[in-house]
Design a protein around this nucleic acid. Structure first.
Lengths: 350, 350
DNA sequence: ACATTTTACGTGTACGTTACCGGAAATTAC
DNA sequence: GTAATTTCCGGTAACGTACACGTAAAATGT
């Protein structure tokens, strides 16, 4: 291995070698007009020869250029405060980097309303942001949106949910397959052989197939064939849920454990509490206020959590890096699959 | 929520308000001498009031201060090229940040020689580095070293191996417990009920207890009680290994699967190949050249890998952030537990 | 009293880049 | 030929901070 000289050259050195002023070099670097083809060539050659890398510190300092990052996430509804955490992370990142000319514009959409997503997405695009942080809650709409961005050369970072078969984009969030796998493991841990398991999806929108696949894979991998009852509830109001659960329990009194595929597990916990079904193993997602309450009271046994705040924070920082430093986006960063219990949740950092 | 004004003030504004020059403000900020107690107070008050955050871009640009990061990792021996990957990551990070005044000094030690570690550690400290990236291969020596650093207020980031019960330091690497757990799962997957499992540690130094604990935990968690044969081999030469394995196989002909707790799995693969034991499930660690060879030929079934290159890269970047930006060190970042097979290793990015 | 040291602060330049202003040279128009 | 454009480029003031230097004023000495 040869020792590389690796001097660090700047525009000044380029200018000296090309026998022009740094102004001209600057014009070439930013390919602005006003340079003859000949000198442009010469300068470009020297740039390549010296392997010139602009000093981003100086560049950001001098340029008053402002980067706008549009954030497209669900609002914090009465129903769920999940998005409070990513929002917090986003704002923390914003506070850190806004002095370097980053502006963050947040567009909230309603998880119950697809059109609000497309509307907000359009609104975001209209402002021609330089980067986008996205929660692709509505798969097909988000896919379309992300392709529009790609066409417009706007980098997109997704959090919380990944888009299937979209390559070249950046995702920061959980590996839902393994998350489901982990859930299955925990369920298996606490379910006797003869009992039934309730796989419960409470959601108005499509559920993530990955969770289910991972959940099921655990059992096939371990050559187990427990009785799994699958239930989808598409309304999210208390009564509808209670009714469906009543029916299900009537049909399957052997249910001993429940896995709720998202953060709406507190509804089920409340139901179980009301019905006095205290020895059912209940597993769900996310450290919401309601969930924690039931975790404390013992109605919920495990919460799986994927560092929502950090997802927001990292998403923004990643975009910042791409925009400013030009560092290539690392395509996928999986968050840890954290298991939260009544014992450890106090020490959990989002 | 009130809209925060959040203007961004700099030294100039502070100087204006305190009715002094920016030079004086600068002196206060860097608490250098030459400022009367009264104005120092006044300026500090204003700084606090405005919640002044220095512009790191400008700061780094103006100061010609150089940060030295000492890296303390094993050398690449004939025996293992594992540390090639972290080194590559470290160098990649170096290339990225050296123009911002970061100098990286690498101290290699010999994994077969404890004293080489302490020697190199001392040598590193003598140069008074501003940060340290450390592979704490020798637990007690490294613990002592890390405490020395902490006493000297030098931030330490560890990779690859974590120090038990050292709090307040930063670790970037695998969660060995779950790594062992994962290994057990894979082993379990491919071992029939009546067969025996060989848990094999080939190492001159102490082995990581976490791996073993995780490995065992998998079986207790899943209420399985397979026959597990544990073997420690403290010499790492071919003959010694072959001899021990001969003995073990003679005593336990029912062994159907082997988990090697580190990257030395290729030795075992070579042994199995020579003996014609082709249908033994073999699992080990790390994408070394030798290991990949045996992965391709089918002697090794699974390699578990924890993104060694990224560990090096992230370790340096983390130190850079702490030193320059002053962003607090995130204490623990676990790397993914990647499962590598002959099918997917080509697509694996370290 | 004046000389000398110390204290306390202001000024100026630099860091590497950006972006704009203006001017010489080249080109076109008349 | 000169005048009006256009093309090409040099010079330079920022950006916010760091730091060396210089210098009044205050404190000390004699």
């Amino acid at each position: 291995m040869k020792k590389k000289a690796q001097e660090l050259y700047g525009v000044k050195e380029i200018a000296r070698r090309a026998d022009v002023s740094i102004g001209t070099v600057d014009r070439v670097i930013h390919n602005r007009a006003g340079v003859s083809e000949k000198t442009r060539q010469k300068i470009n050659d020297i740039i390549r020869e010296l392997n010139y890398q602009p000093n981003i510190l100086a560049s950001r300092l001098a340029s008053r250029k402002i980067y706008r990052i549009a954030v497209l996430i669900p609002n914090i509804s009465a129903e769920t405060d999940f998005w409070e955490a990513p929002l917090k992370g986003i704002q923390r990142a914003e506070a850190e980097i806004k002095k370097y000319g980053i502006i963050i514009e947040i567009y909230f959409f309603d998880l119950k309303d697809k059109t609000s997503f497309t509307k907000q997405a359009k609104a975001a695009l209209r402002k021609k942001p330089h980067g986008i942080l996205l929660s692709p809650s509505f798969i097909s709409e988000a896919t379309h949106f992300s392709e529009t961005c790609k066409a417009g050369n706007i980098p997109v970072v997704m959090i919380d949910t990944n888009l299937p078969s979209q390559n070249g984009h950046c995702y920061i969030g959980p590996h839902m397959y393994y998350s489901g796998y982990q859930a299955a493991h925990l369920i298996d841990f606490g379910t006797s052989r003869k009992a039934k398991i309730l796989f419960l999806n409470i959601s108005e929108t499509q559920m993530d197939e990955q969770v289910e696949q991972g959940f099921m894979a655990y059992f096939t991998d371990n050559k187990k064939k427990p009785a799994i009852v699958k239930l989808n509830i598409h309304q999210t109001d208390e009564n509808a849920i209670a009714k469906k659960l009543n029916d299900t329990f009537a049909a399957h009194p052997q249910i001993q454990s429940i896995f709720v595929t998202n953060s709406r597990v507190s509804y089920v916990a409340a139901y179980l509490e009301k019905k006095g079904l205290s020895n059912i193993l209940l597993i769900g997602y996310d450290i919401l206020k309601e969930n924690v309450k039931h975790l404390e009271s013992g109605n919920i046994d495990f919460l799986i959590c994927h560092k929502p705040e950090e997802q927001g924070y990292r998403g923004i920082i990643t975009l910042y890096q791409t925009l400013v430093v030009g560092s290539p986006i690392e395509s996928v960063t999986f968050m840890p699959i954290d298991i939260i219990t009544r014992d450890n949740y106090k020490f959990y950092s989002n």
